[in-house]
Simulated scan of single mutants.
Amino acid sequence: MDVRVRGGGPVEPFFSARDLLATEYDLEQPVVVQIRDNPDERTMVGHYDDRHELIVSRRAATSAMARELALHEFAHMARYEEGHPSHLQPTEEALFLALAGRSVERRKLSHCYQIANHMKDIYADDITLDIGPTAKLVDFMESSLARALVETPSSAPVGWTRLTETADPEITAVNAAFALALLERHDAIDADHRLYDLAAAAAADAPSIPFPQFKTHFRSLGNDPDESEYRKALVDVTRTYALSNEQAAD
């Protein structure tokens, strides 16, 4: 597995993540890591004919989670190369199928894309949690959810997807369901962990969100779905979120 780091940043986290991934998986295409100075730049992955490309901020590349972040992104690349439906299914197509004929506010539509990313993250992290240590990821999810709850408006992820400056209680509840589901899939969290209390608070802040349903959906995703099965799962969870306020009213 060929990893090339450019931009004058640290190389060790990326090489260490490469070595971890290589214990179980390999990438046919080389990985080019571009470290950029903009601290607010989102981490982005691109797939091309001759390479995978990871763009990451210098702040992320020098953080305590740098190796775990790199391993997570390398796992996405592995899923892409193996042709996993979660990484080939166009998100726009699933959203069109889920929301056809309905009017959805822009805020909730943006959240639907975030939920689609959670679906991808589940399958990427099925790799990372199988081959890498889990303690730092659990701590990261706990601190992310705690921060989101503080930022949630008084009227009222987690995971790898970035939260907005002021957390929306509805997507925060879904993020909490994702975090618990992922960790429970891999027996990476004890039943008395503080994350359960935080998740319960997030669910209470968003009564229109069927929290148990989202957690069950994420946790029970099949390991090897075909294209049709994955599309249906993505359509179902998208529709559940987009129509959650209508369902709560009923």
Rank of each mutant, 00 (worst) to 15 (best):
R4C: 04
A66Q: 11
E229L: 07
D2N: 15
R18Y: 04
S155C: 01
A202Y: 03
E73G: 08
A146C: 05
F140D: 07
L221F: 02
P210Q: 10
V150K: 12
P10E: 07
Y230L: 06
H118C: 05
P207D: 02
P39G: 11
K232W: 00
D190H: 08
K120S: 08
Y241C: 05
P169V: 02
A201T: 14
Y25E: 09
L97W: 05
D49F: 13
R102H: 10
F96T: 14
H52P: 03
Q29T: 01
E105R: 13
A78R: 06
D168K: 04
Y230V: 00
H52I: 01
V11T: 13
E227I: 03
V235W: 07
Y113C: 03
E68G: 08
S110P: 00
D126E: 12
Q213S: 14
V237I: 15
A242K: 03
V235A: 06
R185S: 01
E24F: 01
S143L: 10
L99C: 03
Y230F: 15
V150P: 00
L137M: 12
P85E: 07
D187M: 07
Y80V: 10
S144G: 10
V11D: 11
D49E: 14
A60C: 03
R79M: 14
L109C: 02
D126T: 07
H84G: 11
E81R: 07
H76W: 02
F178S: 03
T164K: 09
N117A: 12
Q29G: 00
R42S: 06
Q34L: 11
P85T: 08
M141D: 10
N245A: 14
L21Y: 10
A66L: 07
Y113F: 14
R185P: 00
G83V: 10
E165A: 12
I35S: 02
L129A: 01
A116F: 03
V45K: 13
H193L: 05
Y25Q: 04
H87K: 01
E53L: 15
V235K: 05
Q114T: 12
S86G: 15
W160T: 12
N223G: 13
L183C: 07
L137I: 13
L71A: 09
P210N: 13
H193F: 07
R102E: 09
L180M: 06
C112V: 02
A70I: 08
Q29A: 14
V56T: 08
D187Q: 15
R59P: 00
I189C: 01
F15A: 10
P13Q: 13
M77A: 09
S86I: 00
A146D: 13
E229S: 14
D40S: 13
G83Q: 11
D121P: 06
L21A: 11
D187R: 14
Q29V: 03
N223H: 12
E170I: 00
H72W: 04
T43H: 03
E41H: 12
H217N: 01
A124T: 03
D121C: 05
F96C: 08
R79C: 12
D197P: 03
A188F: 07
